[in-house]
Amino acid sequence: MTAGNGEFRSFAATRLDALYRSAVLLTGQHQSAEDLVQETLTRMYVVWRSRPLEDPVAYSRRTLVNTFISSRRRRSSSEYPQEVLPEVVAPAPDVDGRVDVHRALGELRPIDRAIVVLRYLEDIPVDEVAATLRMSPGNVRVRATRALATLRTSLPLQSAASTTREDTHE
């Protein structure tokens, strides 16, 4: 094991849980989340071997969401509409509403899901979210507002429990 390898291992150990938490909300599935984190760390390791990273935490976050978004694009381009719907079993909401949250997030476009996760789970400022996703801060704000409106519709129980207070969260 090289010194760089050891440093990367330490870094990955400190970031594993945070990356996984974001990944599980992005993908909605435990196994897919682990796959996403592994691909993220793999890509990061290759870069780590070649040059020093100025902000490894931000880099890991950016790699995670970009890997997720690009994987969804690939999946989208490889899916074809069928005349007969495949037989599926829709997950029923469990008592604590966990499935509801995953389902509601799943209704968002991947990039909007990434914005929600970065903005509201990881509490990243708008400017930093914009830099991570390479879009303007204004675009992030607009998308975040629309995503929040969609989630309010999708999560009526939680919406009813909320108050009229709107946090700026910046």
Partner: peptide
């Protein structure tokens, strides 16, 4: 649902997920 409510909801959902396999790190390095 406020932004704070959403943050709490997302955190609770993430907290309920099983812990990631630590072997991910070794597999990523390999």
């Amino acid at each position: 649902m406020s932004e704070t409510d959403l943050t709490v909801l997302l955190e609770q959902t993430a907290d309920r997920s099983p812990a990631p396999d630590p072997g991910i790190i070794d597999r990523s390095i390999a």
